[in-house]
Amino acid sequence: MKTGKGYTLYFLVYKNLQLKYKHSLLGFVWSFVHPLFYLLIFNFVFSKAFSEIENYSLFVLSGLIFWVYFSGSCNQLSQTFIKNTHLIKSLQVKKILYPISEQLTELVSFSAGFILFIGLMVYLNLHVNPTILYIIPIILLFSLFTFSVGLILGSLNVFFRDVGILWNTLNPALFYLTPIAYSFSIIPPQYSFYFKCNPLYHFLYIIRNVLHQGIAPEFYHSLYCIIITLITVLISVWIYRKTKNGFISNL
């Protein structure tokens, strides 16, 4: 067999995109509309409550789009092996390519939406200067982190189908435990340690550095993000390797 992992990935991404947007009128515009809708709600509900936050719309928006990307990807990746049961059972394609293609699909539609969001952010007074380019490595790092979390969920979901359900249940809790609609400063000091255990906290911190304050990402938080990502990647690869040989019998 010819080896062409790149092509295999390309066709899997093509398939995912087709499946995702095939029967929708708006297509990839949904990746723009979905966060926008939440933005409107939060703006309406919270902008008075958090009036001390400068430029609240931009603040919420910068967090929201990454949250939507994260939770959407994890959701897709948790189902990835189950969705591709037939392919896994009949083709000799490396199984890891399915979650990778799923993440790439999410990244493609996220990026398409993100370009539109940059426009909206500029409208909301985002300072456009070269520091904004820091967002590119941040997106890549964040994608890697999201992929690892999704790979863990996806591998376990093959054996216990309620891992996916459990994840969907915990999702809203994680949303409110992450400073997306509110700022880091309102967290009471006695709880701040627990909040800092949430990896998303550190990611949001550096994302806001770039997209809200218009400055370079803070050094320590960036370092935390890199370390957290590396650890998650190691854990996910370990779990995947432990479980992958049992996939076929449990799908």
């Binding site: 062409g4 390309y10 087709q18 095939k22």
Partner: peptide, 18 residues
């Protein structure tokens, strides 16, 4: 959900003819 042609395309690509 995909059409016959799209399926052929993907199947053929995944089995090595891309």
């Amino acid at each position: 959900e995909l059409t016959g042609i799209e399926n052929i395309k993907i199947y053929s690509a995944l089995s090595g003819n891309y």
